[in-house]
């Protein structure tokens, strides 16, 4: 330990005898155990900030689609986020299918984004910086491609929710969902 003569205690400490290697091992073991203990202690604190049991449990919802007419759209909340559900018209589906994949910034076929072509389900959060795009309500701007338009920074999405123009890097994401009945879906 203290080898320099200036330190207080230099005169009180007798350095002559000791099993040095045994001591070194002890210091190492104590240090390592403290480190492990500290890390293990940190985890409950960190984990307490993760979603709690009641938050996780509500992670799936059921949505009845029977009242949504062709051409209409509804927005539901799932995990605190807006989920866009649009009952697409034949024209919109055709338009989404007509686009050449190679011209898309984030190429993805329309059929890969839907389970039933008339129902488009996706998370309504712009992949640029998290605003909610316009296009759900009848009077909303729908952008240059007839889908959605994010007014924050001008991203245009088409009728399949794919990014076509603007700063957003990716298509609107599709949440995990399944059709429980013909007009009843479970999201999550």
């Amino acid at each position: 330990m203290s080898k320099s003569a200036q330190k207080p205690g230099a005169m009180t400490v007798d350095e002559s005898d000791d099993g040095d290697s045994r001591r070194e091992f002890l210091y190492l073991a104590a240090g390592a155990a403290t480190a492990v203990g500290t890390l293990a202690t940190a985890w409950p604190f960190i984990h307490s900030m993760n979603p709690a049991g009641d938050v996780l449990a509500l992670a799936s919802i059921e949505v009845d689609l029977s009242a949504v007419a062709v051409g209409q759209a509804i927005t539901v909340t799932w995990r605190g986020k807006p989920v866009f559900i649009r009952h697409r018209t034949e024209d919109e589906i055709a338009e989404a299918n007509a686009v050449s994949l190679r011209s898309l910034p984030d190429p993805e076929a329309d059929e890969d984004r839907v389970q039933q072509p008339e129902w488009l389900v996706m998370i309504g959060i712009c992949t640029h910086l998290g605003c909610v795009p316009k296009g759900q309500a009848p009077g909303d701007p729908k952008g240059d491609y007839g889908g959605w338009f994010c007014v924050c920074h001008g991203s245009h999405y088409d009728t399949a929710g794919r990014i076509r123009k603007g700063p957003a890097p990716a298509n609107l994401p599709v949440p995990p969902y399944q059709f429980v009945e013909d007009t009843l879906i479970r999201i999550g």
């Binding site: 330990m1 205690g9 009180t12 400490v13 007798d14 350095e15 002559s16 005898d17 000791d18 001591r23 002890l26 210091y27 073991a29 104590a30 155990a33 403290t34 203990g37 293990a40």
Partner: peptide, 22 residues
């Protein structure tokens, strides 16, 4: 159990240090 081991280790460390204090 972990804390007991830790206390034991630090008892050893403390003793090894203080053994040489005149």
């Amino acid at each position: 159990i972990f804390l007991v081991v830790l206390a034991g280790l630090f008892f050893g460390v403390k003793r090894a240090l203080w053994r040489n204090v005149k």
